[in-house]
Amino acid sequence: MASEAILKYLVDTNRPYSCADVTVNLRGAYTKTVVQKTLDALVESGKIRCKLYGKQKVYVALQEDNKENDTDVEDYDSQLKCLSQLLEENISKLKSVESKLKILTSAPTTLAALSQIDQAKQRINSMEIKLNTLRNSTAVISADEKKLILDQHQKLFKEYRYGNR
Rank of each mutant, 00 (worst) to 15 (best):
Q36R: 13
C19T: 11
L131T: 10
N69A: 04
A120Q: 11
V22L: 02
E159R: 07
L131R: 08
G163L: 13
K47C: 00
V24W: 01
A2M: 04
D70F: 09
S18M: 05
R15Q: 11
T105D: 02
T31A: 14
N125M: 04
R123E: 08
L87F: 13
S78M: 10
L83C: 04
D65E: 11
K158A: 07
T133G: 07
S137A: 13
K67F: 05
R135I: 13
C82Q: 12
I129H: 07
R165S: 13
S96V: 06
T31D: 12
L86M: 09
R165M: 10
K47V: 00
L86E: 14
T31F: 03
A112C: 06
K37M: 04
D151M: 09
A61M: 08
L83Y: 08
P16M: 10
Q119E: 11
L42V: 10
Y59A: 02
D70W: 12
I48M: 03
D151I: 07
L150G: 03
D77C: 07
A143E: 11
K37T: 05
A61Q: 01
L26T: 07
S3C: 04
Q119Y: 10
K47F: 03
T33R: 12
A5H: 12
S3A: 14
R161Y: 15
N136V: 01
Q85Y: 12
H153R: 02
L150V: 15
L52I: 01
L7D: 03
A61W: 01
S18Y: 06
Q56D: 05
L42M: 11
V140Y: 05
Q122M: 02
T105Y: 03
K158Y: 12
A113G: 10
L104D: 07
V140D: 13
D151C: 06
D151E: 14
K130Y: 07
K81F: 06
M127C: 11
L80E: 07
V22P: 00
K8F: 08
S137E: 09
Y30S: 01
K81D: 09
A20W: 00
E159H: 07
E159G: 03
D72T: 12
S78F: 01
S92C: 07
N66R: 06
N66A: 13
N125Q: 13
S3H: 14
I48Y: 03
T109D: 11
Q85P: 00
Q79G: 08
D21Q: 15
L134C: 12
Q56C: 05
Y160V: 06
S137P: 03
T31P: 02
S99T: 15
L111E: 11
K81I: 12
Q63T: 13
M127T: 08
L39P: 04
